[in-house]
Computed example of a mutant assay.
Amino acid sequence: MSVEHPVLIAVAVLVGAACAVGLRRLHRERTRAYAAAGVTARGGLRRWLPPVLFLAAVVFLLLAVARPQVTLGVPRTSGTVMLAFDVSNSMGADDIAPNRLAAAQNAAIAFVEAQPDTVDIGVIAFSQGALSTHEPGNRHAETVDAIKRLRVTGGTSLGQAILGSLTAIVGRPVLLPEPPAPPPDVGYHADATIVLLTDGEDTGGPDVLQAAELASNAGVHIQTVGVGTVEGSTVDIDGYQVATALNEDLLTQVATATGGAYHRAADAGALDAAYRDLDLRTTIEPRPVELTGPVVAFALLLLVAGAVLTIHWFGRIV
């Protein structure tokens, strides 16, 4: 408990003490006056309770002016979220309208706009390689602009997507070593989440499960969002019709390896639901909460109680 104006605490104590002394002196004078007139003064609870309630109300009103505060633990969503977008040619398939990438972009933009500024969001675009198009930060309008600029091109490397996301989280290049070299120490980042938006077709690059294991060792959860349908569709690539379908098994393995979850997004509505279900970190942050309102309310309650009792017992405000 703390107060913004501590000097007013002393003022409240002095005023309360002065009023109490004055009330006591007034009672003695009334008692002497009644005795001199041969009248027995009424005492007990009825005589003392209403004035005490009024006095306490005045003290609490003065305490409210001091603006008391208490520090409480307030839950908040925080941490770092890397949105890793598959921009390979297969993401141009239209089994989700208008196409897989556009549907993923629209849902991601809605997700970004709904996050508080305590969440740092970055964007990775990956096909055969991975490119950080927006570093993690809380300027969410810039994040939305980066998402809107994504275009389909090339093949797919889920391993590069994970390594590129870890690079952005760690702040230095992260690579898988050649066996039998041990995996690199990238630190521990339990407040970071990678959201992998892809149809799951892995056409080459670093081993995706090894990359997922590296993320798991770093405390990073990977939430995979399968964009597309199991039945699949076809896309035109350099004049050829290429079949493409959702690889749910691989995306489930990747998510499970890091303690994350796989979300199937077969349409735009399912994409929105997948974002709402993302396991973002919730932390408890100590924040000062002002108690002026509750203290004033309590003082007013005392005033009303004193007035009601006075009218009930004496028929008037005395």
Rank of each mutant, 00 (worst) to 15 (best):
201 E>K: 06
236 D>T: 12
307 A>Y: 05
237 I>E: 10
128 Q>Y: 09
290 E>N: 13
255 A>L: 10
247 N>E: 14
76 R>Q: 15
209 L>G: 04
208 V>R: 01
137 G>R: 04
14 L>T: 13
129 G>S: 14
6 P>K: 12
146 A>N: 06
223 Q>I: 08
9 I>T: 06
196 L>W: 05
126 F>T: 07
277 D>N: 13
299 A>K: 05
117 D>P: 00
85 F>M: 09
164 G>Q: 09
124 I>A: 03
198 T>W: 01
167 T>W: 06
29 E>S: 12
159 G>M: 08
227 V>I: 15
70 V>C: 00
166 L>Y: 12
205 G>A: 08
211 A>Q: 06
249 D>P: 01
53 L>F: 10
86 D>E: 08
255 A>D: 13
288 P>A: 10
186 V>Q: 07
115 Q>A: 04
300 L>D: 02
159 G>P: 05
143 T>D: 07
202 D>E: 03
157 S>Q: 12
8 L>K: 04
274 A>W: 03
269 G>K: 01
31 T>A: 15
3 V>R: 03
297 A>M: 14
125 A>G: 14
30 R>C: 00
293 G>Y: 07
127 S>N: 15
33 A>V: 06
157 S>P: 09
298 F>V: 14
287 R>A: 11
100 R>Q: 02
90 S>M: 10
72 L>S: 10
200 G>C: 06
187 G>V: 13
53 L>T: 11
101 L>C: 05
261 A>Q: 14
106 N>K: 07
273 A>P: 00
46 R>C: 00
230 V>T: 13
62 L>R: 05
290 E>K: 04
161 A>R: 08
257 A>F: 07
81 V>A: 10
273 A>D: 14
38 G>Q: 08
295 V>W: 05
159 G>Q: 08
202 D>S: 03
261 A>V: 12
274 A>D: 03
301 L>D: 00
79 G>A: 11
307 A>P: 01
115 Q>W: 07
166 L>M: 15
274 A>Q: 01
166 L>P: 11
111 F>S: 02
229 T>R: 08
53 L>M: 11
126 F>W: 03
12 A>I: 11
126 F>V: 06
5 H>E: 10
149 R>K: 14
14 L>A: 15
280 L>S: 03
43 G>P: 02
129 G>R: 07
228 G>H: 02
16 G>I: 13
28 R>K: 11
233 S>P: 00
161 A>W: 06
312 H>E: 02
79 G>M: 09
193 T>F: 01
101 L>Y: 01
98 P>K: 03
270 A>E: 15
301 L>W: 04
134 H>T: 01
10 A>H: 11
103 A>T: 02
89 N>Y: 12
